[in-house]
Structure formats: structure tokens, C-alpha cells
């Protein structure tokens, strides 16, 4: 399943990083602590978080995550969106809170 498929299936917004929409998604990780993601997330995962600053992009790129998904209607800070655009890292958004969107993502990934 690609990031684009997720966007379509879950009705997500795409804030930035459209270039990366064909990346493969192989799981997800929910955390608002950057070191937790740094230490524990894996390549290809979608990172579900409420953090909207540029360091999120840095961590996601260093970890080769497939996308960042912002919850509760949050939008990326301008410099985060810009950097994600340059790096082709999709920054997605949902109005749902983390528990709900993680549940949906989990069942979606297990169906395919």
C-alpha cells in the first residue's frame, strides 16, 4: 500500500511532500516524543503525531519514514511544510485524534 492509497482510503489532507506519495507504507508509529520515534520507529512507517515543527521532518527523513500524519486538524508550521516539500516527505492531516486514526490505519494495513 502506498501513501497515496492511504490518503484516498482514509480521506486525508496532503499538506506537503506530494513527490513522496508513491512511497510504500509498511506500518505506523504513534508518538509525540522525537527520541521515541528516533529509537523505535522503522523504515516505511507512517508517523502519527501532534508535533508540527520542522524537527519532525528531520527525524522522519533520518528514519526513512514513509509519511507524517498530523492529528486533530493540526497543520504543519510553515518551515516544516517547506522542508518536507523539498525532501518529498508527505505531510498528511486528519481531523480525527490519534487513537481513532491509528485504529483505522491499523485495520487498513491488515486488510491488504
Amino acid at each position: 500500500m502506498t501513501v497515496r492509497d492511504l490518503v484516498n482510503e482514509l480521506g486525508l489532507k496532503v499538506f506537503s511532500g506530494e513527490k513522496g506519495l508513491d512511497r510504500q507504507v509498511n506500518g505506523g508509529y504513534v508518538s509525540d516524543l522525537l527520541s521515541d520515534v528516533m529509537g523505535n520507529a522503522g523504515e516505511g512507517m507512517v508517523w502519527i503525531t501532534l508535533q508540527t515543527h520542522r524537527n519532525v521532518t528531520a527525524v522522519a527523513s533520518l528514519k526513512d519514514l514513509s509519511a507524517v500524519l498530523l492529528v486533530k486538524g493540526l497543520k504543519p508550521d510553515e518551515d516544516m511544510a517547506q522542508q518536507a516539500g523539498e525532501e518529498g516527505l508527505p505531510v498528511l492531516g486528519t481531523d480525527l485524534q490519534a487513537f481513532e486514526i491509528a485504529g483505522k490505519l491499523y485495520s487498513l494495513l491488515n486488510l491488504t
Partner: peptide, 16 residues
Amino acid sequence: EMGFGAGMGLPNIKKN
């Protein structure tokens, strides 16, 4: 508040 400072940095270094 930015999600740093959880006291995981040095342990992460040691593990890696």
C-alpha cells in the same frame, strides 16, 4: 514541548 527532553537521548546513543 517540542517533544525533546524525554531523557531518551543518551540511552538511544548507547543502544546504537
